[in-house]
């Protein structure tokens, strides 16, 4: 016999209340309501007994027998292996991280050296340029020091007495 949806819902709700009653999950008010229905309705009483009897039969299910010592030992061994793998993985990760840090430090070192070289090169190049431009003066510094003033040298240049030497040195 098929139940109408409404009857089915009502039956389902009744079952929920009865099962919750058996499981001690109802609040006082709900429990009183269920007990009132049980007192007045034979069908509800029979349904409660059926549900209860079925539940009691579940006690026939066996509790698993476990070789506790063996299970504990094998589980601890499995966890020890997993733990050592975790440690290895951590060490490997640390090694990778260290390698990355060393590589980065090396690259930064190289970059710093190169930068230093460029900077030094630039500074020294400027000094060399100055020296190069001053070279004719430096080479003849002894002669220049014998001259008492610059006006005398300018006079000599105006007269063109040493034009060939000056041009050859320029």
């Amino acid at each position: 016999m098929s139940e109408s949806p409404d009857n089915s819902t009502v039956a389902q709700e009744l079952d929920e209340q009865l099962v919750a009653y058996l499981d001690g999950e109802l609040v006082d008010e709900q429990r009183a309501e269920v007990e009132s229905r049980l007192a007045s309705d034979e069908t509800v009483r029979r349904r409660l007994q059926e549900l209860d009897r079925t539940w009691e039969l579940l006690s026939e299910l066996p509790v698993s027998e476990v070789d506790e010592e063996n299970f504990t030992r094998s589980t601890v061994e499995m966890i020890a292996v997993a733990a050592s793998q975790e440690v290895e993985a951590y060490q490997e990760e640390t090694r990778k991280k260290n390698w990355l840090q060393y590589s980065l430090a090396f690259i930064l070192g190289i970059a710093a050296c190169y930068g230093g070289f460029l900077l030094t090169h630039q500074v020294t190049s400027a000094e060399n340029q100055q020296l190069l431009s001053d070279l004719p003066v430096i080479e003849s510094i002894d002669e220049y020091q014998r001259v008492e003033n610059i006006e005398f040298l300018e006079l000599l240049e105006q007269q063109g007495l040493f034009a060939e030497e000056v041009e050859s040195e320029m």
Partner: peptide, 29 residues
């Protein structure tokens, strides 16, 4: 376990557990 604890273990609502257990008992019967 209480309905509340079962609900937490199974990540369901207490009402869902109430319905599950009711249907389960009816099916077992």
């Amino acid at each position: 376990m209480s309905y509340v604890d079962i609900a937490e273990s199974m990540d369901l609502s207490v009402q869902a557990i109430k319905s599950l257990l009711s249907r389960a008992r009816a099916n077992l019967k």
